[in-house]
């Protein structure tokens, strides 16, 4: 198993499946039982280090860590924005002094989690809870988990991801993870919202949403910020939703079994209409509960086992 969870690109197929299978057990263990808590991470300290507001992700990690009996410290570093850059190092040193075993970090700067994990400032395991426009690995894992629960193994499944790919850490993490798991990923967006060089990603690219819906197994709608139109990424919110929004008409073109995902928070009326978001084939609410299981799995696999010293001592003895 990897030491830090920074990017889904670091996950082998075996690692990814181990996390998903473990999440499946977490779901079975905590659903409908008298005591939802497991004693597994008793005595371990997990710090939620959030340089950016995200109540839903922070809460999800907090619930996950607490269900495993970890001590959870919420360290909101908002205001220590990138303009005061050194705060990342100072904060890391503070957390190290406090004895954090795991750090869940959300930061507006791409690579912040990577820096935290590799700079030598802190010894703790680092879980990336979203870094800039780079990655959001647990979101992709919960998406894959949700899709797998509905459709079975992802091999050969056709997953369509629609929207602001260039600014989306969710899209990057999903492309890497879903392709590792054998799915065929299709990115659909106006060309302005696709990064340069996307043709070298392990995906198909389409500009026309209608053309790819008929054989989609799952459609993931990405959040599109209205402000993007001020930077000329698209002319108007109305034109965007007309060309790339998922409405009832487009929803009807999907196969009966196809499901609809959204990482949230949704812009209802922009990338997705309310009736589609609330339809029975929308798994958006389920994604939230699955997020807890996936994060429990990640925390368990990264924090429950031996520290490196013990591991190497054992290997030496074997």
């Amino acid at each position: 198993m990897i030491r830090h969870l920074l990017s889904t690109a670091d996950l082998s197929r075996a690692d990814a499946l181990l996390i998903l299978d473990t999440a499946e057990e977490m779901a079975r263990l905590t659903a409908g039982r008298s005591v939802k808590k497991l004693p597994t991470l008793r005595g371990r300290t997990v710090v939620n280090l959030f340089f950016e507001d995200s109540t839903r992700t922070r809460t999800s990690f907090e619930v996950a860590a607490k269900r495993l009996s970890a001590d959870v410290v919420n360290f909101s570093a908002k205001g220590s924005s990138v303009s005061k850059g050194e705060s990342l190092k100072d904060t890391a040193l503070t957390l190290a002094a406090m004895g954090a075993d795991g750090v869940v970090v959300r930061h507006a700067a791409s690579g912040a989690a990577y820096r935290l994990a590799t700079s030598g400032w802190i010894d703790a395991r680092v879980l990336n809870a979203g870094d800039g426009t780079h990655e959001h690995p647990t979101q992709a894992l919960l998406d894959a988990f949700t899709i797998r629960r509905h459709l079975g193994p992802l091999d050969g499944r056709r997953i369509v991801i629609v929207g602001d790919v260039i600014h989306s850490r969710v899209a990057r993490s999903n492309v890497a993870l879903l392709s590792t798991l054998g799915a065929d990923v299709v990115l659909v967006a106006p060309p302005t919202l696709l990064p340069l060089g996307v043709e070298q990603w392990p995906v198909e690219v389409a500009y026309d949403l209608d053309g790819v819906l008929a054989d989609a197994d799952a459609v993931m709608m990405l959040r599109v910020q209205r402000e993007r139109m001020n930077a000329a990424f698209f002319p108007s919110a109305r034109e965007y939703s007309r060309r790339y929004g998922l409405d009832v008409r487009r929803f009807a073109r999907l196969p009966e079994s196809a499901i609809v995902l959204h990482p949230g928070p949704m812009n209802r009326g922009m990338e997705i209409t309310a009736d589609v978001a609330d339809s029975p084939r929308s798994v958006i609410v389920e994604q939230v509960s699955n997020g807890v299981y996936v994060r429990m799995a990640a925390l368990y696999l990264m924090l429950a086992g031996a520290d490196d010293d013990v591991m190497s001592a054992q290997e030496g003895a074997a």
Partner: peptide
């Protein structure tokens, strides 16, 4: 391609 992957 790299800037797209690194999110920079």
């Amino acid at each position: 391609v790299l800037s797209g992957q690194l999110g920079l």
